[in-house]
Design a protein around this nucleic acid. Structure first.
Lengths: 184, 184
DNA sequence: GATCACATGTAAGAAGTTACATGATTCT
DNA sequence: AGAATCATGTAACTTCTTACATGTGATC
């Protein structure tokens, strides 16, 4: 039973952990922030919430005081545990390969949920994965650039540049958090 | 009827246009190139190919000479038309918002399929979309950075940096193609 | 009185994932 | 002979998209 939780599911879980809120509030959050690309349609959010509740990761109850029909959502202990497992999982090369979106969502929730030391561990793990992947990409580029069209070559270069930009960002972020963790 | 074609569908269409090939060849391509993230499972590819054929965008026929049971795929006129429409569509801000993956796939196919002038048009369209989106992101950052956690702030910065890296790349790519188009 | 914002959902259908199924051919 | 590779597919399941459905309270 249960098995995997989608990115949308984790996003909902992470937001609910930060503040108890309603499904409608969550939709608004998606609509108004750069997280919007995760899907802001009720047809995705409400079923995802129901699944989280079925799995015991959140609890919902109608709000008494309110005149409107509003259900307030709260994370459970099991939910916190599940979110933590996701947040602390080692960053694999395949995670980096499939794009930064998932990783950045994890990172955005990290320090509020688990503190600075955990955030730093995440960043170092991400740095290691990038250090493994970027040379792979570069070596693919060097072997294949010759027989690719200009645009395909440039497209690949764009990917490499973007991972290099991520690498620089990660380095800077580590410095920021090293300062925080050490400087107490 | 028919309606939309997924990114995987366009990827298949684009690859078949470049070289007639089999489903197995396509799987190998996905497995061996950085395009792999589009999905290399037979359960995705074969149904996607069937849909393309049902819509008249590709044709398949068993290869006679070959001993193995192998179907060779070829693009039809309708397929070329459909691919061209996708490749030449104006880049919207929403396209940029949902990530560079789709756009870079389009770009990778562009010059072999439609030549340098079309590639340049695409790049300029993409540049315009980025010029609209990056300031939006920056302004969101400025309004909200104050009440965000450090990690959420850094995550957003990472997104901004990555779009800025894209902007620089696009500028350089435009220069490359301007040289090509003018320098004849 | 109508329309907008709040608030929650369902229904139909498309597409992807994982795992399985099948069979031929080449390599060891 | 057995294993790996070539080659094509199906089945069950999960999830997302788009569009619709429903109803309240506030605003014009």
């Amino acid at each position: 039973m249960s098995l995997q939780i989608t990115l949308l599911g984790y996003a909902l879980l992470g937001l609910i952990r930060q503040n108890d809120c309603s499904g409608y509030d969550l939709r608004k959050t998606f609509a108004e922030t750069p997280m919007g690309t995760l899907g802001d349609s009720p047809g995705a959010i409400y079923p995802a919430l129901r699944r989280l509740e079925e799995r015991g990761l959140i609890r919902s109850r109608p709000v008494k005081g309110s005149v409107r029909q509003r259900r307030e959502l709260a994370i459970t202990n099991a939910g916190v545990k599940c979110l933590t497992a996701w947040l602390t999982a080692k960053v694999q090369v395949t995670d980096v390969m499939s794009g930064m979106k998932d990783l950045m969502l994890r990172f955005a929730f990290l320090d509020a949920a688990l503190g600075e030391a955990a955030t730093l561990r995440f960043l170092r793990s991400m740095e290691a994965a990038l250090k493994e992947y970027v040379p792979e990409l570069r070596s693919y580029f060097q072997s294949n650039a010759a027989h690719m069209t200009s645009s395909a070559r440039l497209a690949l270069e764009s990917g490499i540049l973007s991972y290099e930009a991520q690498s620089r960002w990660v380095k800077r972020a580590i410095e920021v958090y090293e300062g925080k963790v050490e400087g107490r």
